[in-house]
Design a protein around this nucleic acid. Sequence first.
DNA 1: AATCTTTCAATTGTCAGACATTTAAAAAAA
DNA 2: TTTTTTTAAATGTCTGACAATTGAAAGATT
Lengths: 241, 241
Amino acid sequence: MGERKQSADLSVEIATAIREAIIEGRLIVDERLPSEAELSEEFSVSRPTVREALKRLAAQNLIRTKRGASGGAFVNRLSFEEARGDLITTSTLLLSMNEVDFDTACEARFTLERACAPLSAERRTADHLATMRAEITRQGQAGLSDESFCASDVAFHRAFVDGAGNPVLSWQLAAAVEAIEPLMNMITYSQRDRTQVIALHTEIANAIERQDGLAADRALIRLSAYTQELARKAMELRKKR
Amino acid sequence: MGERKQSADLSVEIATAIREAIIEGRLIVDERLPSEAELSEEFSVSRPTVREALKRLAAQNLIRTKRGASGGAFVNRLSFEEARGDLITTSTLLLSMNEVDFDTACEARFTLERACAPLSAERRTADHLATMRAEITRQGQAGLSDESFCASDVAFHRAFVDGAGNPVLSWQLAAAVEAIEPLMNMITYSQRDRTQVIALHTEIANAIERQDGLAADRALIRLSAYTQELARKAMELRKKR
DNA sequence: AATCTTTCAATTGTCAGACATTTAAAAAAA
DNA sequence: TTTTTTTAAATGTCTGACAATTGAAAGATT
């Protein structure tokens, strides 16, 4: 693990060296890294520098640390659930920092979600369907705050995607749906007619129930069109002011 | 920026506080953070602790640091290009650490890529098409190493996805295509018939050229089926041994 | 012998202070 | 005005220390 490229910060070099070891399988899941003191010997740097390197890895969920005797840094088993949060954060920042226009984000979101329609129609379990129905019911409740409606919307679409029964797809779609949702709601809050959205959600749920992927796809297309229409209206209103 | 939750590591608390400030827009792109000395005063911790927090943020590409007078830590504009690398790394590790079977990964990959077909057929520029053709030519060259063929394969599919003209889609698909590609090649190397793959690539390029999204989709389906068939053969061979 | 309690040692977390290195800007010289 | 030198601010690194945590060993008790 000891060799390293030059001319970068030491903590970067060390973090890179250890990261490669993990990626290449020379360090396996749950294996304990040498202690900070040992690492600082091995790389000929001070302990603070080693620690900075370890913090870099910890920030990427590649390792976890434990104090005490028989403590130390351990290679972390990266879980989809853990990685989901980071992915959503990154996506959110990417969208907000890069002036991605709403149409582009929206198009990506629905394009990807539509891709799940055939699989979800085929494989959805009763659980997925029940979740979708429950969220639709929730969305119809009077006095539901905009935030709760938004959260329920996310939950509905997540159940839809999970219905495809492919964890890799679910993971990827988390970013598409959850990162874009806040942006979407920000723009379309004021204009949105909940009954319209609920009707389309119901249509999607019905299609999924009778395992009709094409119909689900068609409903998603209409939901996409409705969303973009709302965005257009909101933009016009903003211009007038 | 000073308040913070308790009972976690100090460097985690501080990193979280700053991260939230960035996400919520209280720190904007290219803005300079207080110096390490100032931060350690503000949070009442030592400088090494502040530094560990900053390294965590740097590992997520949220900040960059510069030495010297008028140096410091600056909020980083997260670029799609930067984020792509991290996403691929994370995806690769997720796949290798979670015993995702090949079929699942492959299904996710082609499902997402197929979703790009209509858009790519509609919007691809001459550049995208030229890249695809060039990669196909490269793939046909005698004496091309397996690694180079694999790289060319990735480049071909990337051009296809980029053809959709949606940076958000391109970003998301990077993980799907590039993280899964090595896994795919690992399994199908020995069995693969390059002429078969090249024929399908040509079919895709032709469809994209005449802007026929459906035909491109059909070709992708066949490429997917061929890939999975190869995987099945490879598995059987492995069992026999 | 078995179980509870205490002690101990290893390890990470935090701190203080120092020096090295880099860099832009100010000051001085040409 | 231009070039060179100096300077100060900031990050990068090191040393050495102490605090906090925790599993395990040692000891005490039943």
